[in-house]
Structures are given as C-alpha cells and as structure tokens.
Amino acid sequence: MTNQMASLPLPPLTNKPRTSRLSRWRRHGVSYLFVLPYFLVMLAFGLGPGLYALLLSFADFSTGLPKYFGAGFSNYLAVFKEFRFTFTFANIGKFLAISVPLGIAMVIILAILLQMRPGRLTTALRTLYFISGAVTGPILVLVVIFMLDPSISPFQALLKGMGFKLTNDVIYPGSLPIIFTLMGFFAGAGMWIAIQYGALEAISTEVLEAATMDGCNAWQKVLHIKLPLIRPYIIYQFILIFAGNVQLFVEPQILGGGNNLGVGGNVPTVWSPNQLAYNFAFEMGNFGATSALSLILLVIGLGAAYLIIRWTGFFKIED
C-alpha cells in the first residue's frame, strides 16, 4: 500500500486528513461493528448505572422527584450521620475479617491436600466440594437455618454438646459473622478449590521431580514450591472474595426478613451496608442517600479491582 502510494503523485495537502480518516474508518469499521453490542451493554449496565448513581447522589429527593444537583453533599452527610452507618460497617468489617482469611486458607489447604496425591477418591471428593456450590442464595440460607436448629439438625449432637437448645441460642447478633462465613464457604469454596486445583496441576512436573531428587518430602514441596507458585491466584481470589463479601446482601436480608423465620427477632433487619442502601431507597424513599452509599461501596470494590490490576499486574493485555 505504501509502495503504491509512493509512485503516485502526491494528493493535495488539504485532502490528506480526510482520506486517511476515511480509510482508517473503513479499516476499523468491522472491528467496531464486532464490539458495538458489547460496548452498548457495557454503557447501559456497567458504566451507565455508576454514572447515573453519581448524578443522583447529588440530587435532592425531598419532594419525591429528583432535583438534580439540589442536594450538594447532603446525601453523603445523611449516610455518614445515619445511626446504623457505623453499625453496618462494623458488622461487615467483622464478617470480612473472619470470612476472607479463613475462606482463603481453607480453600488453599483443601486444594493442596486433594492435589497432593490425586486418585479416584480425591476426584470424587473434589466433585463433592464443587457440587455444593449449586446450593446458594435463599435456599442456602434456609438449609443453614435447618442445620443450626438443634431440634432437627443432623449436627444436633455437636450443637447440643456445645450447650445450644434453640435456634436462637445459635443464631444471635454475635454469631452472625461466623454464620455468614459458613454460608459463603459452603456455596463458594468448591469453585475456588477447583480453580486452585487447576493452578496446582499447571505446576511443571520437572520442578517437582527435581525437588524430590533433592530429598524434598511432600510437605516441603508444598511450602517451598507449590505455595509460592500459586501466589498470583491466591491474590486474585483474595480480591474477588473481598469485593464480593463487601456487598453482602441476600443472606442477612433473608435471615432478618420474615417474622415467621423463627429467628427474625434475633437478626437485625438491617445488618450490612448494602441492606442499609436498600433501606434508604425502599423504606425511607431517599434515593439520593442510596446512590451515595452504593457509590461508597462501589468505590471500595473499584479500589480493590484497581489494586489487583496495577499492583500485581497479572492480567494480560497484549499489544
């Protein structure tokens, strides 16, 4: 193309930008056609809601209809002044402090123990762990209520041994972070075990054989070879679990929701920040405060996302 151009007389200077823009458009037109549907849904359901929430967080809802830019920072102030703000963030903080390190440690331990000496039984166990991920959302909450009811639970010997007689002895405000951790681990661990198992399988056998030759036993190989090599996946899991757990909503909403769950009185109706955001909108009609609080949570999630990409730099973008 450039060679041909060289043999032709130079086009007038004024035409040059137009033709090159046109040809570039022609060259990239098909590419844009391919990404267009994705780009549109990204605008509508990825970037759009975020930007619209930003707009609404500065809007005044006191008349019921949004008055854009009418509120200044008062919605943010309302969120910070809300008496349940510290309560919900303290709750989620406790939940994160328990669920994130414990969840990751147990997933890694189980993946390593399974993959150490693979056989038919370990494959069956991995499938068993994995399949429990099918029990999630509302049904998981209900199953856990049953599991924690000393009168019908298959773990009743354990519960009674610990001195619990009623569901309310087991499910009370102080135990909620642990209960949500148990729920999250039940539904999510299997998937992560499978992912980490895949990562462990990808470690080159040559390295491991060399270690065996040098007299490493199985546990030394785990500590000095496997763990350091799967470090990136552990960080990846950390960030995704952190960003996901900050948004906790379904479990406390169902557990604290109905009067006839038998645990309603013991579980606050608003326990997590996301529930508080929901509550601002649908109980108090203050969509501005909902937007402000959602954005705060969004920024926490985005911060985690940004950290994972920049700080570890392990997502591939090729040129």
């Binding site: 809601p49 975020g50 960030i239 995704l240 900050v246 909503f249 996301n274 954005l295 969004l298």
Partner: peptide
C-alpha cells in the same frame, strides 16, 4: 472485578 450486586441499586 466488580461484583454484580454493587450495581443493583444504581441500576
């Protein structure tokens, strides 16, 4: 990397 639940209320 953003959990879908982060966007529910804005959406």
């Amino acid at each position: 990397l953003l959990p879908p639940s982060a966007l529910v209320l804005p959406m």
